[in-house]
Design a protein around this nucleic acid. Structure first.
Lengths: 239, 239
DNA sequence: GTAATTTTTTCATTCAGTGAAAAACTATTT
DNA sequence: AAATAGTTTTTCACTGAATGAAAAAATTAC
């Protein structure tokens, strides 16, 4: 029932939930009451339900937040401060990259992919980094599927994607221009913990104001700092 | 069962969950399997369960994230950029203030209250702002309860708290020094939407390097910008 | 002011969740 | 290396809690 809510429909009425789930209204009514009780659902003035604050609180206890976004934040802020560009943090989940954080200082920048958004592995800088250092079985799976084309620049052939990935590994970071969003230029680098890639950080520029590759030193620096902090915590923390 | 996880215990084994909840292991085992299936729980290499990525994703759909933190972020970043101090965003929930966002650029700053943490309304700058402009019934409730003392500076008497609150309303922002954390100096201001307070923004300084009141103009500016954006969205959006 | 839609309450039915018990693992100790 | 304590997994007979049809109440639309 909570699954009926999405980024496009974050607010729903009782009967909308009923229709979306196929559950009878009476059932939805009862369940919604219980969920509201527990803070999993909340309703505003106009009888709309939204996901409740409890779910937000639980989300904060999730490894992706507590162990990644929380630790990464100071490094991302610093990177943003140094480069003045949009910076982003992404992780691999299944066959997608997922944005964990994204910082854009300028007020009023047109809406870009939100935090939590899933983006293709083959068509973005962070995606290519996550893929380049992923287990080979995942690479096989991804290149084995049809590669969706988003712009004229999107890599859509198996051969050129594999070539690009080894290129990324050689260089140590990925460079992508207009492969997903026309006009967007980005670089991204991996964050390793004990030799395994945990996340990717990127710097994006939406109108090619500056040569984005000038940011690579700062980006790699942020990634190393972040990785070092993660290893430090893993050693101290537990397990 | 998900409630067994907390900021102090974000990772639990099967039997720890069983003990924490009082549920028999067999039941926990089955439920954990189902929850893992749905992405609500995940387990790492060493048989520990954590809350799953699905909960994080749902948390992002919550009004507190999508409608507050998301919108506030550019203003907070700018405020942080201008002041170079720690900036924070908090909302009222029940009888507590809850941190929604907090930005500290410098790497390695000692651990302070995390996002999602609940902090007292009477002993912090953001809390006092949220309380000062809250419904009078809440003010009555709060001053009616014993006011926990955290430092020598904490306001603990009903009279002086009420005086402080009207002081806040006169001035338009709150000022608090060492009332909750010794050495912490903070100011905070309200964010109004259609005359109702929706959130509070604050600037904190942990060693009184600078006179924090010098930041008040920037803070009020950020709050107004944020408030204007919220009203804009409320008008456009829906409802 | 009436019709259409949405929300709330009630209640007999039934079926899905429960947890005891035992087996299969996994560490830890001597 | 064998014994022990702790943890995880599987099975299954039982039962109580969840279900949803139907009707009433409230709200919204025309």
């Amino acid at each position: 029932m909570l699954g009926a809510f999405s980024a496009l429909t974050p607010r729903l009425t009782l009967s909308q939930i009923s229709r979306a789930t196929g559950l009878p209204v009476a059932t939805v009514f009862r369940l919604a009451g219980e969920l509201e009780e527990g803070g999993f659902l909340q309703r505003d003035a106009s009888h709309f339900y939204s996901l409740g604050i409890k779910l937000w609180e639980m989300g904060l206890l999730t490894p992706v937040h507590g162990r990644l976004r929380e630790i990464a934040m100071p490094f991302l802020l610093n990177l943003q401060y140094v480069t003045h560009e949009t910076v982003q943090l992404a992780v691999l989940d299944g066959m997608d990259a997922v944005y964990v954080e994204k910082l854009t200082s300028e007020v009023g920048v047109p809406i870009q992919s939100r935090i939590g958004a899933r983006i293709p592995l083959h068509a973005t800088a962070v995606g290519q980094v996550l893929l380049a250092y992923a287990e080979t079985s995942l690479i096989d799976d991804v290149v084995g599927m049809p590669l969706t084309s988003y712009t004229d620049e999107t890599i859509t052939s198996k051969r050129s994607l594999l070539r690009e990935l080894s290129h990324v590994r050689d260089r140590g970071y990925a460079y992508s221009a207009s492969e997903y969003v026309p006009g967007a230029v980005a670089i991204a680098a991996p964050v390793f913990v004990n030799g395994r890639i945990e996340a990717a950080c990127g710097v994006v520029n939406y109108d090619a104001r500056t040569d984005i590759e000038e940011c690579s030193a700062a980006l790699l620096n942020a990634c190393h700092g972040f990785a070092a902090r993660l290893e430090e915590l893993k050693a101290t923390g537990q397990s």
